[in-house]
Design a protein around this nucleic acid. Structure first.
Lengths: 229, 229
DNA sequence: AATCATCAGATTGTCAACAATGTTTGTCGA
DNA sequence: TCGACAAACATTGTTGACAATCTGATGATT
């Protein structure tokens, strides 16, 4: 099969999403270099479009652009990691606070369904799904809290968190592994503002405390395998 | 003078900053269309680079990119406006909270100097400077609070605030006009966390309440005059 | 053997021409 | 006069080629 270059055009948002997922779900290790031409071939897109997508990813902090050198999956430092969690606490606590006041039955239903889905992923040891769903849960809270801006900001922070965990995680496979404890508690007590807030605070602090601030594991895999169609 | 096209190359960050300032300082009205070729001539840069800069500005929410139509200075809706203030309260209250704990003499000195500068601008009725300095003050708080991420986020939010005020402002020329009251109080009581937090909350709420949620004034001026060298 | 200059290869940065799309203007017919 | 259609124009989107830059290797020199 030598005609692999002309598989499908692949739109810009697709490319972005694909890379975003691959990084956030830790299929690409921090530090990995992303060559424009390489991606250009994988997605059958011109370098210019790849370049634009990389620009966006860089703005989200997922990759780092070094002038004349290229794009690398970001390797957040300890300080940056702590900063990400600080920002997440800031944003998510406020969101939970607001959500507790405004949430309705439909919203609670959605959260419940999601927790159920997450539980299933854990049961099947579906790590990739579990990671994605865990982030999605936090994001859902943001969306239900009706702040487009904070939702967007949080989306980036969650993906960065994923990166951070890829670098500094000690043992847990998943930032919400005790899903039925943390997530459920947060959910069930969602009608009492103060408690929900405290739970969210504790939840994020818990994740942060699990981190191992030492190793710099680097393991580059073949991008074609990960991103290819 | 027909050789106006070859004035100077103008680097990417310069272009970005120039446009950012022009929009944030309200020299360009919301809704104004920014044509690539037009900017390309003004800055003596190729369209490709202009395009990249526009991409970044769009990511910051300062301009809106409509596919196949071009870039327009954003016209935030009432809902978006409220959301911006919600996000600012979220971020800035937390920053002030932290700053109160960590600030040192040098930091206080910086803030004091800045307030003084701001006072001068007001005294000279230097509106452009006043707007810029007011934003810079809030930003300085963020920087002193040592959170790179929240600082970056706040920078965008402040510029968007400027846009919002350009659209919905009733009377005041400036979001911190009673500079010697609000800003100073916030500064002087900076050693007591609870109070400073309350002051910041009140300050932002005050700005938000000054808005006029009705008119959609559109006044497009000549970009060449505003941006030209 | 170690250090530094130089050169080839690879990769990113820039550009200008071309294609696709959207907008306006002008024309025709009712 | 008004509306619909069509052509001309203006603007954005895309591409491939070329220039600038960095990396790593080679080899000369001390």
């Amino acid at each position: 099969m030598d005609m692999e270059a002309g598989k499908r055009p692949a739109t810009d948002p697709e490319i972005y999403q694909r890379l975003w997922n691959a990084i956030a779900e830790r299929q690409i290790s921090p530090g990995t270099r992303l060559k424009e031409e390489q991606l250009s071939e994988i997605f059958s897109a011109s370098r210019a479009r790849i370049r634009q997508v990389l620009q966006n990813l860089a703005h989200d902090g997922l990759i780092t652009l070094v002038p004349n050198r290229g794009a690398f999956v970001s390797k957040p430092s300890i300080e940056e990691a702590r900063d990400v969690f600080f920002a997440r606490r800031t944003i998510e606590e406020r969101l939970v606070e607001r959500l507790c006041v405004t949430i309705d039955a439909a919203g609670i239903g959605k959260l419940r369904d999601h927790v159920e889905e997450e539980r299933k992923a854990h049961a099947h040891a579906d790590v990739a799904s579990a990671i994605r769903l865990s982030g999605a849960f936090h994001l859902m809270i943001a969306e239900l809290a009706q702040s487009q801006i904070l939702t967007d900001l949080l989306r980036d922070l969650i993906s960065r968190t994923s990166l951070i965990m890829a670098m500094y995680q000690q043992k847990d496979v998943h930032n919400c592994r005790p899903g039925r404890t943390q997530c459920d508690r947060r959910l069930h007590r969602c009608l009492d503002a103060k408690q929900a807030l405290a739970v969210m605070h504790h939840h994020l602090a818990h994740i942060e405390n699990q981190l191992d601030l030492e190793t710099d594991r680097v393991a580059t895999h073949d991008l074609e395998d990960i991103l290819g169609f």
